[in-house]
Computed example of a mutant assay.
Amino acid sequence: MILYDQRIPASLIEFGIQIPVKDSRSIKTFKALLDDPKLLPLREHWHHDRIVETISREDLLRVHSANYVNRLYSDGLEQEIISTFELIDAEGKYYRYAPETATRPLTDLFERLLTKAAGSIQAARLALDHGFCFSFTGGAHHAQHDFGKGFCMMNDIVIAARKLQHEKKVDRVWVIDVDAHKGDGTAALTAGDSSIRTLSVHMASGWPLDEPAVFADGNANLSFIPSDIDIPIESGEEGYYIERLQKGLNKLAENASADLAIVVCGADPYENDELPSASRLKLSLEQMFARDQLLYTWLMERNIPSVFLMAGGYGEDVWRVYAQFLRWVLHLRHASHG
């Protein structure tokens, strides 16, 4: 099952934001699936084409502070977007941002981000119904309780988990984060809550772990709050990635199972990803495929419904990571029975 609403671009260029998230990562991935002669005739069985779920303030308030949510619904929204997407540098200059090229107001981005977050909830519902769903949106794992960070304005991962727990659709949730960067917001938001267990395999150094552990104002850096299982990978250790991930997954399952797994399935560990802050981890296309096959197979063997979120993936080549995995999954789930 795939949730892909083609009305929602991946790129932020219409807002003047020049972060290298490309529309091609969605468009080319989907085209690769439609170009498959076995999958195309079965499209109505695997493609959900509309995000119909909505996000309310109540949904946000289960995860984020009232102060932050109020700022998002106020005249302060533009400043929150500028801060979250790091559009102004320490010298006060625009960074990866050219407002004169924008065709839409920056504040319009908020509604799109709400829709993307709602997509994670909808995809999780589809996973509970069908056993698996891959969403072409979601995975904003850096958003914290009181602020956005690292291109992540609201933590849709925890929002989805909390909403489904609130509705008593699930009790225990696993978050398995294989994005290049540590899932720091998710770890902080769920710290001490045994109902949501977190695993993050990520670059051992670099952003956000190159920030100080304690800021100049004396406040602790929330990015250093540990996940339940952290698997740091140093540059040059890519050959151990799959083995360490396998051990981490087995450790995750030692105590109790889960009613739902949310996989933050970023493509930015791929060696051809174009985001500079992800460059310390360089997995080959073959290693990325092995990662995704391991995650899917391991969860299916345990009968745990799983929602995979597209998460981080930057540049013109990352679609290959998603396409190879989804072709394989859809053949397993649909084409082999067609």
Score class of each variant (00 low, 15 high):
Asp129Gly: 08
Tyr97Cys: 07
Phe289Tyr: 13
Thr103Phe: 09
Trp298Gln: 03
Glu44Arg: 09
His202Ser: 09
Arg50Asp: 05
Met310Thr: 00
Leu113Ala: 01
Ala124His: 02
Phe85Ile: 00
Leu164Ser: 08
Arg62Ile: 12
Leu61Arg: 11
Pro41Cys: 05
Glu80Asn: 15
Ala216Lys: 14
Gly76Val: 05
Tyr73Asp: 15
Glu243Pro: 09
Leu109Cys: 12
Phe30Thr: 00
Val318Thr: 05
Leu113Cys: 08
Tyr314Thr: 04
Thr54Val: 15
Arg57Ala: 09
Ile229Phe: 07
Leu87His: 09
Ile157Gly: 06
Gln6Arg: 11
Val158His: 11
Gly312Thr: 01
Leu113Thr: 08
Leu199Asp: 00
Thr115His: 13
Asp89Trp: 15
Phe132Pro: 07
Leu299Ile: 02
Tyr270Met: 13
Val173Ile: 15
Arg291Asp: 13
Glu234Gly: 02
Leu3Gly: 06
Arg162Gly: 05
Ile242Tyr: 04
Asp59Tyr: 06
Arg333Asp: 13
Leu249Arg: 00
Gly139Leu: 12
Asn221Tyr: 11
Lys247Ala: 10
Phe134Glu: 02
Leu128Lys: 07
Leu12Arg: 01
Ala180Trp: 07
Gly312Arg: 01
Arg333Thr: 02
Ala261Gly: 02
Tyr97Phe: 14
His141Arg: 12
Gly312Glu: 00
Arg302Ile: 09
Lys247Cys: 03
Lys168Phe: 07
Val63Ala: 11
Ala256His: 15
Asp49Leu: 04
Val263Phe: 02
Gly239Gln: 06
Ser200Ile: 02
Gln293Pro: 06
Thr190Asn: 05
Val214His: 04
His145Lys: 11
Asp5Tyr: 06
Gly185Met: 10
Phe151Leu: 14
Ala102Met: 07
Ile159Asn: 08
Ala118Gln: 09
Arg62Met: 11
Gly315Trp: 01
Phe147Val: 06
Ala180Cys: 10
Leu283Lys: 09
Lys38Arg: 14
Ala117Ile: 13
Phe134Ser: 00
Ala216Pro: 15
Val321Thr: 09
Gln165Lys: 03
Val263Leu: 03
His47Gln: 01
Ala140Glu: 15
Pro99Glu: 11
Glu14Gln: 14
Val52Arg: 15
Ala258His: 10
Tyr73Trp: 15
Ser74Trp: 10
His331Cys: 02
Arg302Met: 08
Lys31Ser: 00
Ile262Ser: 03
Tyr73Arg: 13
Glu243Gly: 01
Thr54Gln: 14
Ile17Ala: 00
Leu281Glu: 04
Arg320Ala: 03
Phe136Thr: 00
Arg197Gln: 14
Met288Thr: 11
Asp59Cys: 04
Asp108Cys: 12
Glu271Phe: 07
Ile262Trp: 03
Phe15Asn: 07
His45Met: 15
Lys169Cys: 10
Glu78Val: 13
Lys22Gln: 11
Phe289Gly: 06
Leu189Thr: 05
Ser11Val: 06
Gln18Val: 09
Leu106Cys: 10
Ser26Arg: 01
Gly150Glu: 11
Ser227Thr: 04
Thr54His: 09
Phe85Met: 05
Leu40Ile: 05
Glu254Met: 06
Leu330Pro: 01
Pro20Ser: 04
Glu234Asp: 10
Asn272Tyr: 12
Ala258Gly: 13
Ile88Thr: 13
Leu61Met: 14
Asp210Gly: 03
Ile233Ser: 02
Cys265Met: 07
Cys152Gln: 13
Pro232Leu: 02
